[in-house]
Design a protein around this nucleic acid. Structure first.
Lengths: 178, 178
DNA sequence: ACAATGTATTTCACGAGTAAAACACCTGTT
DNA sequence: AACAGGTGTTTTACTCGTGAAATACATTGT
């Protein structure tokens, strides 16, 4: 059984090797979930490492770019709290990043006139130009990275991931019980 | 056009909303890659957060569990360098983790008799028992998390991710040119 | 044998993220 | 008006990972 149906679609990746090892040690276990979760984690690690390359050229980390991108794509000012929610990071992390990005002249802040607790953050012209300069590179690079999958498979993969993510966000966001 | 073919497979996840925002700002861009890479990253973040729950009950972080798991599934001793490669982390990180895990009595080290630079790390009985106690919980939890996808889709997803990961590891591991 | 080079591991200094406390301010109630 | 409690943001203390230097040892060539 060297070429089963599963082997046709399953590449010779490191996760497959790990799963085989586990099955040898614990033959009864259902290792199905590992083949998805392990691969998602590993793909994320590799993709982030790869994606960081174009960003690093611009002197940005990915979380920094996510923050700038959130401002760019929404098209309006955001408060630190909104930025934290939008970029899925803690408020404290956003505070630090805003400090750095402000010093670099990429974002500006202004206080709210009604509620003096809240701040409004917006891109400077430089910040906006930087995002617009990076984004095409970023997308081109991502296209290259995914080029090994043909368009149909890419579409399938995007759909399945979307379905999974939709469920995860519903469940986990709504308070998943363990 | 409220229910196109794409919308059938694409869940109402946050990445879809982000992509829509980008398309509104930069209508010409091919946002296809974002729908995969963005979702992989977001899924990884949510899954890790979720997975951490069972591990945290055992007082372990995920990198620590990965290290113990590598020892368990290979079934033999590993050197720090091998552990670093196996868990995709830096040597320095492995050194730190080994220090902690040794103090907790979960792993033991022994020097190589031939080459006195290298150390050999193995699980203690406690360490092995801990991994074997956690793993079923872990797999059961992962199954729960993925239960929203029917088995056929799970298989499809695992296959596509395996193909992607296989390519990524070949490319990036072999030195991807930007 | 001895220097030169290479390899395995650890140490160090630092950057980045987090949770929890602190702070500043708002809002509803009495 | 004054206070109690809630919310937005920042600060603090800490942990963890990283890259680069340091360390210790092995190996190769002369």
């Amino acid at each position: 059984m060297t070429a089963s149906k599963a082997d046709m679609t399953t590449g010779p990746d490191t996760v497959a090797a790990v799963v085989r090892q586990w099955q040898a040690v614990h033959p009864g276990f259902d290792t199905g979930p590992m083949e998805i979760i392990g691969r998602v984690n590993r793909c994320a690690a590799l993709l982030q490492q790869a994606e960081d390359a174009p960003l690093r050229r611009a002197g940005l980390t990915r979380p920094e770019f996510d923050l700038l991108g959130a401002l760019r794509r929404t098209g309006h000012e955001l408060t630190p709290g909104e930025l934290a929610r939008e970029t899925f990071s803690s408020g404290a992390a956003v505070t630090k990043r805003l400090k750095q990005l402000t010093e670099r002249g990429l974002v500006e802040r202004r206080g709210d006139t009604r509620d003096r607790r809240v701040a409004h953050v917006r891109l400077t012209d430089d910040g906006r130009a930087l995002v617009d300069a990076i984004l095409p590179d970023q997308l081109a690079y991502e296209t290259t990275v995914l080029s090994s999958l043909d368009p149909e498979r890419r579409h399938e993969l995007a759909g399945l991931l979307g379905a999974l993510l939709g469920q995860l966000e519903g469940r986990l966001g709504g308070g998943l019980r363990v």
